[in-house]
């Protein structure tokens, strides 16, 4: 603990300490004993009955956690890989973004496997878009049709 350390060998140690110079006020209730607070009585621990990935910047799983959607499939494997690296590394975050995109495809496959064909336009809220922005929807549809027609033309030319 801080108070057991002896700094007498350092000339001038602590001479300018000013407990009032606390820039985190008012968002932090500064009590002057930050270092004494680093150990606390942990709350009861939530039983770990699903796979929980935890940051390697902490030694354990927090006392409570969300038990939703444990990692699975290819996206899950990528997430496990990501959690081998700290939050300081791109190797942590970029694989997680990749996993999210793969998860989206896996979700689509899962829907179809369960016999549910997702209504993607409805999920994207196109009913509201049509109600309040018909011109925008028509513009998008025309643009998409133009791009599709252009691609078909390109394909046809390629075959010749």
């Amino acid at each position: 603990m801080e108070e057991t350390k002896d700094y007498s060998h350092i000339k001038g140690w602590g001479i300018d300490i000013d407990p009032e110079n606390e820039p985190t006020y008012p968002i932090k209730k500064y009590t002057g004993d930050d270092h004494a607070q680093s150990r606390w009585e942990r709350p009861s621990l939530q039983p770990i009955d699903v796979e929980v990935l935890h940051s390697n910047e902490r030694p354990n799983v927090s006392a409570v956690f969300g038990n939703t959607l444990p990692p699975k499939g290819l996206s899950g494997a990528i997430r496990r890989f990501a959690f081998r690296y700290s939050e300081n590394r791109y190797r942590h975050w970029l694989p997680l973004i990749l996993a999210d995109r793969i998860d989206m495809v896996e979700g689509l496959i899962e829907d179809l496997r369960r016999g549910h064909v997702p209504n993607i336009l409805a999920e994207k809220g196109y009913k509201a878009e049509w109600k309040y922005n018909q011109r925008g929807v028509i513009k998008k549809a025309v643009a998409a049709a133009a791009v599709a027609a252009y691609l078909v033309l390109l394909l046809k030319r390629g075959r010749k």
Binding site: I27, K29, D34, W40, R42, L53, S55, A63, V64, F65
Partner: peptide, 27 residues
Amino acid sequence: CGKCAFCKQELYGNCHESNPEATAVGG
């Protein structure tokens, strides 16, 4: 959690006992 060092300092958005996946943000 109300018990960790950060909650004790009223940093309730920075709780250390509510998010296993990242240390930079509470649950």
